[in-house]
């Protein structure tokens, strides 16, 4: 994916974007008007129109990629153009401002546009960085496969826990059912483990990393005089450790998927904010012409 959309058709859109940027910079350097550079000169209007058209088209990608029947290019091609022309937009729009900024609607529109583009850069970086880490983390397994492993572990845990005595069985069952993966988006991104366990005498305590339940089992192991029970508890603690590692890997997977996608929740809403500000910018500029 990463290789493909950036190098789509030998980076065709890279060259288009470069050409657009070069022409914009060239015109800006060449045009020498009596007044300070400004969006209202002929070049200002030209660059502004190009930038506005680009913004609308870039936002249209969101529509196009859901339009499975469309024959207008491939989504991959669109993505490639989206990335490169979106980057060129920095040049075109900045030259349109004539480097005049202020506390006004116009600079707001520009700022929102820059946030969108920079969040897009984060997206490209994320797509370059995280997929390989995800594969590395899960060993190529899908998340349902990992959860099937967890379920398998849980079945073993249940059998062993019954041999460990009723207290242990209840505690292990509690640890299993109060296992939490994910949570709020922040918890997902921070890989928080909000698992809990109901322990006799202690009540509901945090079971992050299965630590509390493992400690509880080991406590019982220490107190155990029964050989068979001791063996079951030992095995139980090992299995709980495995479960903790497995869940940790799932949480890491949740985190990586979150990191891979979180920029979209900035990119998309701010893009629409930018579109609204752009509309207000164009309308207001011509209201007070």
């Amino acid at each position: 994916m990463f290789e493909s959309f950036l190098t789509y058709r030998s980076g065709r859109w890279f060259w288009w974007a470069l050409a657009l940027s070069a022409v914009s910079i060239g015109l800006y350097a060449w045009h020498d008007l009596p007044d300070p550079p400004n969006g209202g000169t002929w070049l200002g209007y030209t660059l502004g129109s190009v930038a506005a058209a680009l913004i609308v088209w870039l936002i249209w990608l969101g529509r196009r990629k859901r339009d499975y029947g469309s024959k207008v290019g491939t989504v991959q091609g669109w993505t490639s153009a989206h990335v490169y022309l979106g980057t060129a937009l920095i040049i075109v729009a900045t030259l349109h401002t004539g480097f005049q900024f202020g506390w006004n609607l116009h600079t707001l529109a520009y700022t929102l546009m820059m946030i969108v583009i920079l969040s897009g850069f984060f997206g490209i970086w994320a797509y370059a960085r995280y997929p390989s880490r995800m594969t590395e983390n899960t060993g190529g397994k899908s998340r349902p496969e990992l959860y099937t492993e967890v379920a398998e572990l849980d079945r073993q845990l249940q059998r062993l826990a019954e041999k460990g005595g009723p207290e242990v069985a209840t505690a292990v069952a509690s640890a299993v059912e109060r296992t939490v993966v994910g949570g709020s988006w922040l918890a997902q991104l921070k890989r928080e483990d909000r698992s809990e366990v109901q322990l006799p005498g202690k009540g509901l305590v945090s079971n992050a990393g299965m630590a509390a339940i493992v400690d509880f089992v080991i406590e019982h192991l220490g107190a155990s005089r029964d050989g068979a029970q001791g063996e079951a508890l030992r095995e139980l603690s090992t299995l709980l450790g495995n479960r903790a590692r497995l869940l940790s890997r799932i949480r890491r997977d949740v985190q990586l998927v979150g990191l891979l996608r979180v920029w979209l929740f900035v990119h998309v809403p701010v893009a629409f904010a930018c579109l609204a500000a752009l509309t207000a910018h164009i309308v207001s500029v011509f209201i007070y012409w």
């Binding site: 099937t148 979150g258 979180v262 929740f265």
Partner: peptide, 23 residues
């Protein structure tokens, strides 16, 4: 087994983020 994971809020959308509404 497959459903085990589905109880958790594992997507950013389920974690409270949205695109359409904020847009």
């Amino acid at each position: 087994e497959g459903a085990f994971g589905s109880q958790f809020r594992q997507t950013l959308e389920l974690g409270g983020l949205a695109r359409r509404g904020p847009s």
